[in-house]
Design a protein around this nucleic acid. Structure first.
Lengths: 114, 114
DNA sequence: CCAGTACATACTCTTGCGAGTATGTACGCT
DNA sequence: AGCGTACATACTCGCAAGAGTATGTACTGG
């Protein structure tokens, strides 16, 4: 779970996952699509692979990556444990609380910034 | 979305969220429950608050934190976009990598790298 | 008003992570 | 066999993030 979240909590990797959400892609296709260098793609794909989020399929010189079901399903399962919290009917109340809190902090907190 | 994932992708913060999943808790309670020092708790709670995952309620000298609905709901919404991948009936599908698609991509696009 | 509680914040230090660069390797083609 | 493609890996560097420590601040009871 933590591993899955860690893998997803990076801009480039999140974008890779979103690209792969449309279907399997080779490393080159991912590089083109995201305008990143190839080594970066490979390294991020490595992290995604080690976290179990993707799998590789070697096809000639191509390495085709695709999303795996399990981690996403587990993430969903984890999230459902909190369904009682977020699946409520749209309560504006907690949004309001946030606004009030932010405003209060603005008033007295801020001292010197480095 | 990325902010939510970043906030969750840290062991201590994930544990804090799980504690708060059982209901609102004060900072002291969180420290006791997780056996961490108070400044660490405060700092992590700050990150969680800035990411919108929690809210504070000041009660006397206590600061009671509780989970917020929206980020969790958004995470769920994001995850649902990939439901077609992980909610399939075929549980083994991603294990045995199917190689039926993609015949084209022989030689197109991929020329010289800048 | 004083002292203690309950937190937040500032600061330093260390480690990890991502970017950039260079090089290694497997495969196909002619 | 040799070359080009497609990708992985090694290495260095800079920076940001978490831990640890110390101190500041708000509220409350006596």
């Amino acid at each position: 779970m933590l591993q899955t979240l860690t893998a997803l909590a990076e801009p480039t990797r999140l974008r890779i996952v979103e690209v792969l959400g449309r279907g399997p892609r080779s490393v080159g296709e991912i590089c083109d699509r995201l305008a990143i260098e190839q080594p970066q793609a490979s390294k991020h794909l490595r992290v995604l692979r080690e976290s179990g989020l993707v799998v590789v399929e070697t096809r000639a010189q191509l390495r085709v990556y695709s999303l795996r079901a399990r981690p996403l399903r587990e993430l969903n399962a984890w999230l459902q444990r909190y369904r009682s919290i977020w699946a409520e009917r749209l309560d504006r109340l907690d949004e309001l609380v946030v606004d009030l809190t932010r405003e209060k902090e603005r008033n007295h907190g801020r001292k010197t910034r480095k």
